[in-house]
Write a protein that binds this DNA or RNA. Structure first.
Length: 411
RNA sequence: GCGGAUGUAGUUUAACGGUAGAAUGAAAGCUUGUGGCGCUUUAGACGAGAGUUCGACUCUCUCCUUCCGCU
């Protein structure tokens, strides 16, 4: 019972399909612009890509970003953004803006804060860290009506349910908004996940009811690591008149397994997906991009490229020694780069690589007091690298060479 | 040559007559719908020799190192 709206705030046209997988290219269009998919959407949680300014964003040719409901609601406040004419004007950004509903903060400020669980579970290394550090209290309280969040700034309480999330996202004026969901960690039992899914599904219906029809709304598939819950969720979400479908939640308890589980989960639900755009929430390592695109994902958002840039890790291509093992990165503060006068990546044509060597970045990254210069250069490199990789992926799909490219990178 | 000071991880340093701490540098790892540039782990040192002592990085002596001053 897919009921198409008369004037959809979003159009998505599939332009090519890979013959040997579900990979596809498309054009996603809203009133603010268009992107070619597959596309990795850089994250600008607080309406800002950390370390970059407007000019950098323009030079990088970033056409789409993702901001966050919870964070903007707290600071500077969605009403203030509404009064400045919406996020595009507030940021002076001409492009598509996605907003996340705040549902992920049930995990990131809840279980992740308390025990260190991420959406990909936890690994031994992480567990060790968590056992050492004292557990911190959760910032969320989940009820059937919504989530009571503590402010990360002053501990004040803020209730966000589906209605509130839709209102905030309407105030933010983003092009594409997410249904309000509960992002569950994988350490929860089947019965808990089932209850949470029922809740999320109810919230999905309420999100449809209360959302601003001028905004494109994506429904979110949850269900944790459980096959029947994922399928149930996929059937339900895809039966509703959402403009797009997002895949969220966590995939498995342990880090190693959860990657495979993620692939499997997409495979389970892929038959319930249709020609609407499919967004993979919060995923974006290089191998993940290939695996997910291969399974029909159109858009991604991920903090990883920008975060690891600030944590001194820079992407490198195969030709510069990148591989699955080193996650296609080098840690630029290693002693071996101190006098390395070569480019960060042989193939990269970003402005950082044009003007700086590895030794330059080493020196800047080591500066204690002012890391702004470093963070900016590193972020530019990593984002450029990823945007470029996605372009290569799109080209390969169109040329019927996606499998070859995938194999080449993941060998 | 004489006098004074000095000597602890690669570097900067702390303490102590009884397991030598830290910072920084080095190496390895973590990071996936971002709490603003982070977190975890590992390796690494008492200048050399003799003496006193149950036991010396610590006290004594000799030598060496480096620094300062004087001739």
């Amino acid at each position: 019972m897919i009921t198409k709206k008369k004037e959809s705030p979003l159009s998505f046209k599939i332009t090519a399909r890979d013959k040997r997988s579900r990979a596809r290219t498309g054009i996603l269009k809203t009133k603010s612009g268009k992107i070619e998919t597959p596309y990795l959407i850089p994250v600008a949680t607080k309406a800002r890509i950390i370390a970059l300014n407007k000019k950098d964003i323009k030079n990088l040719n970033i056409k789409c970003i993702l901001a966050n409901t919870y964070h903007l609601h707290l600071k500077p406040g969605d009403k203030l953004i509404k009064n400045s004419g919406g996020l595009n004007k507030f940021m002076d950004f001409k492009g598509i803006i996605f907003t996340d509903s705040g549902g992920f903060q049930t995990l990131s400020l809840g279980e992740a804060k308390r025990t260190g669980y991420t959406k990909l579970g936890k690994n031994q290394e992480r567990e060790k860290m968590i056992l050492k550090n004292e557990k911190k209290p959760s910032f969320v309280k989940i009820t059937d009506k919504g989530i009571q969040f503590k402010s990360v700034y002053d501990n004040s309480l803020h209730f966000i349910g589906p209605k509130e999330s839709m209102k905030i996202q309407s105030n933010l004026g983003s092009d594409v908004i997410m249904a309000f969901d509960e992002c569950t960690p994988a350490n929860k039992s089947f019965s808990y996940q089932k209850t949470a899914l029922t809740r999320t599904n109810k919230w999905a219906v309420l999100s449809l009811k209360y959302h601003n029809p001028k905004q494109a709304l994506y429904g979110i598939i949850q269900g944790g690591q459980f096959k029947n819950l994922r399928i149930k969720s996929a059937k339900f979400i895809s039966s509703l008149p959402f403009d797009g479908i997002a895949i969220g939640g966590s995939f498995g308890e342990s880090y190693g397994d959860s990657k495979r589980a993620m692939h499997q989960i997409i495979d389970w639900i892929s038959q319930y997906l249709d020609d609407r755009p499919v967004h993979m929430l919060g995923i974006g390592w290089i191998d993940d991009l290939f695996e997910c695109v291969s399974r029909g994902i159109d858009t991604f958002d991920c903090v990883h490229p920008t975060r690891i840039a600030r944590h001194k890790q820079l992407y490198i291509s195969l030709e510069s020694g990148g591989n699955k093992e080193n996650k296609f990165t080098i840690k630029i503060v290693k002693g071996r780069y101190k006098n390395d006068k070569t480019k960060i990546d042989k193939n990269c044509r970003c402005s950082t690589c044009k003007h700086y060597t590895r030794a330059d970045l080493y020196r800047l990254a080591k500066e204690k007091n002012n890391n702004n210069d470093y963070a900016k250069l590193a972020t530019i490199h990593n984002l450029h690298f990823m945007l470029n990789l996605l372009e290569q992926i799109r080209k390969s799909i169109k040329a019927g060479k996606f499998q070859k490219l995938k194999k080449h990178w993941l060998k």
